[in-house]
């Protein structure tokens, strides 16, 4: 009895182990494949960022004497320090982040609401309205720039404002108008967020909303407590994309915002400073004690400081994403939605 059982056990164990070996090798091959491609492409991506960093961290007198593509000959924080002072970094960073955060939240909120209507409510003309969403994704902002500028300069709602104030409203030069654009879904790439979220809503089974209704939840309760948590991955994606694009946007801010805000947004500062690096360093020297010697004549040094500026400007985005990407996984593990 016992031997028979043992033999039987043995053969199953053998078969199992052969299966396990095969599975293990397949998994290992898959892992090697995955890591090879990720590391190769990752290397390509990280190169320009690292080179920018390297140029910033290299000691200024040693710029251009590098004999290695990866290791700086000597390091110093001088370029970064100058970049920090030229950008007025803490002030600029605080303003940029707060300003961008407001814009990203407004855009996400507007898109989350509008997209739900587009996904779930069918009414006359809803497809035409949705076509407008697609249009707003496709039309490059430059092509309606002139008309947009003029309509912002003389903003009016069917002649109503002119009737009340005697003249149309000038929306140019105020921070409010940028927020207004974001809140009405027409900010930077506003159409895309609506589209992404609409597709995510449509990917949910209608039955969960029906179940919530049967259980006595009203429309708003269903939306905020049932529907929104289910699309949290997409909501997060949309808000991250919106943050990145608003943070680096130069078009709307330079078109609409006032001078004060323009001088604080890091993306604008960066593009502004690149043309006048020489004078920026010179200007900085005049503000510093004479013992601190700066060099502004050499174009290599100008480029080094510029690299440091560029690195400082994009660094917050990378740090932000590092913290946000962990949430990507949590958001989904929490939701226990099955296919039906």
């Amino acid at each position: 009895m016992t031997t028979k059982k043992q033999i039987k056990n043995n053969s199953t164990a053998q078969r199992l182990s052969r299966y396990a070996v095969r599975k293990k090798t397949m998994n290992a091959l898959g892992l090697i494949f995955r890591y090879t491609i990720l590391i190769c492409i990752g290397f390509l991506i990280i190169t320009p960022i690292y080179q920018t960093f390297k140029e910033g961290i290299t000691e200024q007198s040693m710029l251009g004497f590098s004999n290695s593509a990866w290791v700086p000959p000597a390091t110093s924080m001088q370029s970064f320090l100058e970049a920090y002072l030229i950008l007025d970094y803490p002030k600029g960073l605080l303003f940029s982040i707060l300003n961008t955060l407001v814009l990203a939240l407004l855009q996400t909120a507007c898109a989350a609401l509008a997209a739900y209507t587009f996904a779930r409510l069918k009414f006359k003309g809803s497809s035409i309205l949705f076509a407008i969403v697609i249009f707003s994704i496709i039309v490059p902002s430059q092509s309606i720039m002139l008309a947009q500028y003029i309509s912002f300069k003389n903003f009016d709602i069917f002649g109503l404002i002119k009737l009340i104030r005697g003249e149309p409203l000038n929306l140019i030069g105020s921070t409010f108008s940028v927020y207004l654009l974001a809140a009405t879904g027409m900010g930077v790439k506003g159409g895309l967020y609506i589209y992404i979220l609409r597709q995510s809503y449509r990917q949910l089974p209608v039955s969960i909303e029906e179940a919530a209704y049967v259980d006595g939840a009203g429309f708003l309760k269903t939306f905020f407590h049932i529907v929104l948590p289910e699309v949290s991955a997409s909501l997060l994606t949309v808000s991250v994309l919106s943050f990145v694009w608003n943070y680096s946007d130069r078009y709307l801010i330079s078109l609409l915002m006032g001078n004060k805000a323009r001088g604080l947004q890091l993306s604008l500062l960066l593009s502004d400073v690149q043309g006048r690096m020489r004078w920026a360093i010179q200007d900085l020297q005049s503000k510093m004690p004479a013992t601190y010697v700066m060099n502004w004549e050499s174009p290599l040094i100008q480029k080094g400081v510029l690299s440091a500026c560029a690195f400082l400007v994009i660094l917050p985005l990378i740090i932000l994403y590092f913290f946000v990407q962990k949430k990507f996984i949590q958001g989904v593990e929490r939701s226990g939605l099955g296919g039906d």
Partner: peptide
């Protein structure tokens, strides 16, 4: 109501300039 904000933007800041 959900659609109103977008509708305002779509009309005044997009369709009109277009």
């Amino acid at each position: 109501i959900f659609l109103v904000p977008w509708l305002i933007g779509a009309i005044f800041f997009f369709m009109v300039p277009l």
